[in-house]
Write a protein that binds this DNA or RNA. Structure first.
Length: 157
DNA sequence: GGCATGATTGTTGGA
DNA sequence: TCCAACAATCATGCC
């Protein structure tokens, strides 16, 4: 459906510009391309509805860098539209950065990671509690779940 | 109007 | 240990 539009154009360009730099990237790319539909569906459709409370993956150092890079890139290139161009430029820039320059982004990523681990631990706890309660008392678990939800909201904040 | 897609790298989780 | 999936972003295009 949507794939028929920019996919062909951009994809063509991308293949010409960058066939496959990394082995993993190429695989990821291929997987994303071929399973993009199911992946997206899983992501937005099933997964989202399945575990809406599941903590999202923490942003890697590269993504932290991209957050800032996008702003800068948009300011310097207001005519450039689309995330693909920004992603490409960001990737190249990221590679050109030295370890020292990447350090602050990695530090931020590490922070997010630790937070993610906490949230995940809590999330796993709740999952076990819910499963356990469900086996014993479904009615009782209901009220407990409600309380847990409240806690989650607070944690999220 | 709404949703999928495009690119990028890194990280995580599962098999 | 390896691989696949997913994380953010948003203009664009199709149905």
């Amino acid at each position: 459906m949507k794939g028929a539009k920019g996919k062909g154009t951009v994809k063509d360009k991308k293949e010409v510009l960058k066939p496959v730099d990394d082995k993993r990237v190429g695989k990821r790319k291929a997987a994303t391309k071929t399973e993009s539909s199911s992946k997206k569906q899983t992501k937005k459709g099933k997964l989202a509805s399945k575990d809406p409370n599941k903590p999202k993956k923490p942003a890697s150092a590269f993504f932290v860098f991209m957050e800032e890079f996008r702003k800068t890139y948009k300011l310097e290139n207001p005519d450039v539209k689309g995330v693909a161009a920004v992603g490409k430029a960001g990737g190249e820039k990221w590679k050109s950065l030295s370890n020292a320059e990447k350090a602050p982004y990695e530090a931020k990523a590490a922070k997010r990671k630790s937070e993610y681990e906490k949230v995940m631990a809590d999330y796993n706890k709740k999952q076990e509690s819910i499963a356990d309660d469900d086996e014993e008392e479904s009615d009782k678990s209901k009220s407990e779940e409600d309380e847990d939800d409240d806690d989650e909201d607070e944690d999220d904040d």
